[in-house]
Design a protein around this nucleic acid. Sequence first.
DNA 1: CTGAAAGCGCTTACAG
DNA 2: CTGAAAGCGCTTACAG
Lengths: 351, 351
Amino acid sequence: MRQKAEKSGPKKPATMRDVASHAGVSVATVSRALGGSSLVTEETALAVRRAVAKLNFVPNISARTLKYGQSHAIGVIVPDLTNPFFSEFLREFEALASANGQVVLLANAEASVGGALTSVRQLLMRLVDGVVVLPSLDELEPYQLLTLRKVPTVAIDSRRTGPSFSDVSLMHEEGMRQAVGYLKDLGHQKIAFIGGSPGLMISKLRLDAFQASLKMHGITVRHEYVRHGNYRADGGDRELRNLMLLADRPTAVIGVNDLTALGALRAARTLNISVPGEVSVVGFDGIELDDLVSPSLTTMSVSRKLIAQSCHGALEEMRLGRGGSGRQLYIPVELIVRQSTGRPLRKTTKH
Amino acid sequence: MRQKAEKSGPKKPATMRDVASHAGVSVATVSRALGGSSLVTEETALAVRRAVAKLNFVPNISARTLKYGQSHAIGVIVPDLTNPFFSEFLREFEALASANGQVVLLANAEASVGGALTSVRQLLMRLVDGVVVLPSLDELEPYQLLTLRKVPTVAIDSRRTGPSFSDVSLMHEEGMRQAVGYLKDLGHQKIAFIGGSPGLMISKLRLDAFQASLKMHGITVRHEYVRHGNYRADGGDRELRNLMLLADRPTAVIGVNDLTALGALRAARTLNISVPGEVSVVGFDGIELDDLVSPSLTTMSVSRKLIAQSCHGALEEMRLGRGGSGRQLYIPVELIVRQSTGRPLRKTTKH
DNA sequence: CTGAAAGCGCTTACAG
DNA sequence: CTGAAAGCGCTTACAG
């Protein structure tokens, strides 16, 4: 009869118990040695490390999570990874998280409220240390579950704070004021806006800022100059065409984000409408792409790195703090002038 | 003396035990009810569900993970989220994962082998069900740990399979053959290639395919026509400029990926070199951006959705299968002709 | 300095 | 149909 199979079989990954018996100590000692406890002899620690290396031991984090109720994972709820704004944010945020020994759990929220709720539940089940909510839905529902559980949460542009709920808001107002002022100085009076899907907070905020800026500069807000896109290039493309169908065309167009503006640029190109001669175009975000197209895109730029730092900082503060109220942070917006904007051609647009 | 505080204090999230006492049953029954076991009376199940709703109970998945050794999480190791190829892949993959009740753990691998190894260890600690490796480093090290643990792994373009290790490869050869054939038919004989960083598999594969295709079509491979970029736009920009400094300029340039080709387009624009008149440009990937620039980019396109499906399918097969050897899958590449390619101008480039 | 034991929250044979 | 108990792998007071 053979001995009990030792090297064959599914061979489960080594546990601390295996390491312990290999090193001739108890699991408690192994745990302490790996945790760097000063209670352990250098000699013992060495034996443990040797056993760890020999057995390729990797600790099972779910045991620790079970013990502490914290997983060192951070959930990030993203509406559309295809939008460079989000993927660039994610890159910065992931770097911060992993530098802090945390891992990023990706959750999608494309599928409206139902999707967001499911995502939130998934994250709660996994005892995330915190959650970043990028979509900024108007709906409160998904957030409430998080707040109820006191999970540190930070949203972008929700303009709302509360217990264990912080907000990082871009200074749209300031950016818009700069952009509209800049366009006005160039001689523009007919300025249009292509927003995103009406449901989302960010579109509302930027539209409001747009309208307020026009008023502040004494420019009439025209109903037909306010359009709704979809945050993607095709929406910007479509709405620029619609704007160009108007008898009295705008001479400048501001997009709710860069993709929208890039779509508008493409439409202008296709229609043989010169930019910035016949129409100036301004975006919002400052994605790396802006500089790859021709004409390059004038935009209200915001530092993705700063957003990521603010989000991560706010989460850590709430996590480590005494669970007080969240904070409201603001991110500056800077107008970057490139080739897509200029003086309007001197001709009466009405024929 | 007050009663033991019930509503104040940190109030830990409800556990199954709380649900049980609330519903007047045992935790075993709660577990069964939530698992949809047919052993539970409809009546009991109802009481349990009511208690769950009342207490906002969300199961703690780390307990389950501890029991089963599987976390229903899939790790995805990405080299650069800023590259649309990867973010578009990630979107598709995340959709598949969440449709299967799995969550995506993001891991970055920018920082060479050390970074990859750290990522792999993080994923192992979390008992991921599988791992997708996008970087395709030449180094074996990080992979070995995964294989050792029998964690289902799928890599892209590693051209390597093994126990619990599958590979999804793009058919570069076929794509290159099409592209070079197409350029030759247009009249091009001087064709250059801008690769990526030399260390990565994908650059080597595409360069090899490029050179093989030239030979097959009877075109001389010129040493000075082979350049190394960095997979990003600035690399393509830089190398196109270098190519244009040559006394005998190429009339067509193929980029290792779309970002490289888009950078080359930008450089040509800046240098006032007409595309496709003076130089034709071809990319590889088929990212959504290709259509946003002008001239739009001719490219060898590959379906991100198909790649994602293949990766997820391979992982599931290995996870559910008897742990046999992994599979080698291939993804077709299709040449999409847009505006950046055309006949070379009829003039002697030598002066 | 080290070890035995309890406990984190769930699941599931094993009894009833 | 339901419950008591063991066990997943770790950590940490509590003894020694």
